[in-house]
Structure formats: C-alpha cells, structure tokens
Design a protein around this nucleic acid. Structure first.
Length: 105
DNA sequence: GTTGTGACTACCA
DNA sequence: ATGGTAGCCACAA
C-alpha cells in the first residue's frame, strides 16, 4: 500500500517554503504548524539534511530568541544573516525583533 | 537495548 | 539581560 500521506519532512519543507520573504519563523513555530508542537529539534535536523542547492528559504527559520542558531564565528551564521538582511530584516546586535518579523502562518 | 547528540524551548535564579 | 537546567524527540553508533 502506498500511503499518499506526506511525511513529516515533506510537511516541514512545505511550511518553510511558505514563509514570505522579509518574515521569519521559529523552529518550534514550524513544528507547531506541522502539528508536532514538540519537534523543534526535528525541524532543525530536517533543515540540516537539506541538499546544498535547495531552493527552500531555510534562512528564514531562527530560534525562539530571535537569534541565528549557529555560532557567530561560523560561515553559516554570516550567510544566514546576510540572506536575512537582504530581505530588509534588521538585526539589533545579534538578534532580530520577532515582534516585527515573526510569521504566524 | 542504551547512550550521546543536536540549526530547540521554557523556566528559573 | 545572561547563564544554567530540565524536558523534548528522532537518530546514529
């Protein structure tokens, strides 16, 4: 039997893909929208497993503190921050104001 | 089966 | 604000 039911990964991809430019969502927020409120870490793992050339706007996913979940010294941090700033998202020190940019679905 | 780990979060001092 | 901690759950070794 081939269940046409989408896997959790596919669900996550779909939700992430629907985050509008200039907005962000948290890992927990993605999980919640997928119907799995306690799977924030799974969202992170799914994004980590994305192929390099993926068209998914993975950079619009940040943590609940409004911070990028990479060490500040890493290339990944810089890349994600740059992509977000390119969408007119403003960083105050090392964080963005979720109040201004959070996408609620 | 157990253990350690992680692109997480909420809570508390 | 900042740092520590417990809870969380799928996965790899």
């Amino acid at each position: 039997m081939n269940t046409t039911e989408p896997s959790l990964d596919e669900l996550i991809w779909q939700v992430v893909a629907s985050i509008p430019a200039g907005k962000v969502c948290t890992y927990g927020g993605i999980a919640k929208l997928c119907g799995y409120p306690n799977h924030a870490r799974y969202v992170g793992r799914t994004l980590k497993n994305l192929p390099p050339g993926s068209a998914l706007p993975w950079h619009r996913v940040i943590n609940s503190q409004g911070r990028i979940s990479f060490p500040e010294s890493s290339d990944q941090y810089l890349q994600q921050r740059q992509l977000l700033e390119m969408e007119n998202i403003i960083f105050h020190q090392q964080r963005v104001r979720l109040k201004d940019y959070l996408w609620l679905g």
